[in-house]
C-alpha cells in the first residue's frame, strides 16, 4: 500500500465549506497532466486554492508524493512556499499577477532566493528562454501584452521547480498557436500539472487524465479519452466538425 501511495502524485480527500458552497473532493492524480473539467461554479478554482494552501480545508487530508500537506485531524497545514518544508506548489491563473514594480527577469527570480546568485541567474535565463520571454526580460509588466505576461507568469511559477503546478485557465486569452507553445514549454519543463480548462481539445492534445467536478463533487476521473466520452459532441463542435449521428 505504501508503494501505491508513493506512486500517486496527489491524493486528496477534502471538505471545504464557505458561504453556502460545499466542496467534497476525493481524487488521486497519477498522470503528469490532469485536466480538471466542470461547469462554472462547480468549485474548480476553490479546489485549486485548497490544494495550493491559499484556502483552508475544513476537514480532510492531502498528500503530494506521499508528503502530507494537509491533515486536519492532526492539525497539519503546510504553508505555501518553495522551501523544502513548504508546500512547493505553483499556481498560475488567468490573472498573471506579476509584481508590477519588478522587471520580468526579477519576477522570475523572485522564488529563487535559495539559489546562489550565479545559479539563480542561470535558472532565470533558462526559464525565460523556455517560455520565449528572453526579449521581455528587462520590461515591467505594464509594458507587456496579456500573452507576454502569461509567459512570464509561467516562467516564474516553474522556475522554483514546484512538485505540482496548478493552472486555472491561464491560456484563456491566448490564441491557439500561443496556447500550444505554452503547453509544449510546460511539457519540456517536466513539471506535473493540474489544469483547469473548458477546452476539451486541451485534454486530447496533452493526452491527459481528467477529473470532472460538478456542484462541488468529483463525478468522474481517469483517462481523459474515457472520462470525457460524454463530452465528445462538444469536442467535435470545438474542432469544427459535425457530430456524427449514431
Amino acid at each position: 500500500m505504501a508503494s501505491d501511495a508513493a506512486a500517486e502524485l496527489l491524493d486528496a480527500d477534502i471538505l471545504f465549506r464557505r458561504a453556502g458552497f460545499e466542496l467534497r473532493a476525493r481524487f488521486m492524480l497519477r498522470a503528469p497532466w490532469t485536466v480538471l473539467f466542470g461547469p462554472s461554479g462547480a468549485g474548480k478554482t476553490t479546489l485549486l486554492r485548497v490544494i495550493a494552501g491559499l484556502a483552508a480545508a475544513e476537514r480532510g487530508r492531502l498528500t503530494l508524493h506521499g508528503r502530507v500537506l494537509t491533515d486536519t485531524a492532526k492539525g497539519i497545514a503546510v504553508a505555501p512556499g518553495t522551501g523544502a518544508a513548504q508546500r512547493r506548489i505553483g499556481f498560475v491563473t488567468q490573472q498573471a499577477a506579476l509584481f508590477p514594480h519588478l522587471t520580468a527577469r526579477a519576477n522570475v527570480a523572485f522564488g529563487l532566493t535559495s539559489l546562489a546568485p550565479s545559479a539563480r541567474q542561470a535558472r532565470v535565463a533558462e526559464m525565460l528562454r523556455l517560455f520565449g520571454a528572453e526579449a521581455l526580460a528587462e520590461r515591467r509588466p505594464a509594458a507587456l501584452s496579456g500573452g507576454e505576461r502569461q509567459r512570464v507568469a509561467l516562467a516564474r511559477a516553474v522556475a522554483p521547480e514546484p512538485e505540482l503546478l496548478l493552472l486555472d485557465e491561464p491560456f484563456a486569452a491566448l490564441d491557439v498557436t500561443a496556447r500550444v507553445a505554452m503547453i509544449e514549454a510546460l511539457r519540456t519543463s517536466g513539471v506535473q500539472v493540474l489544469y483547469v480548462s473548458h477546452d476539451l481539445a486541451d485534454a486530447w492534445q496533452t493526452n491527459a487524465n481528467a477529473i470532472v467536478l460538478e456542484s462541488g463533487q468529483v463525478v468522474a476521473q481517469g483517462e481523459a479519452r474515457v472520462v470525457l466520452a460524454d463530452y465528445r459532441s462538444q469536442l467535435l463542435a470545438q474542432l469544427g466538425a459535425s457530430t456524427p449521428s449514431r
Partner: peptide
Amino acid sequence: DTALIEQARLLGA
C-alpha cells in the same frame, strides 16, 4: 492586490 500577495506566498516570501 491580494493576487500579488498570494503569489509572493506561493513563491516562498
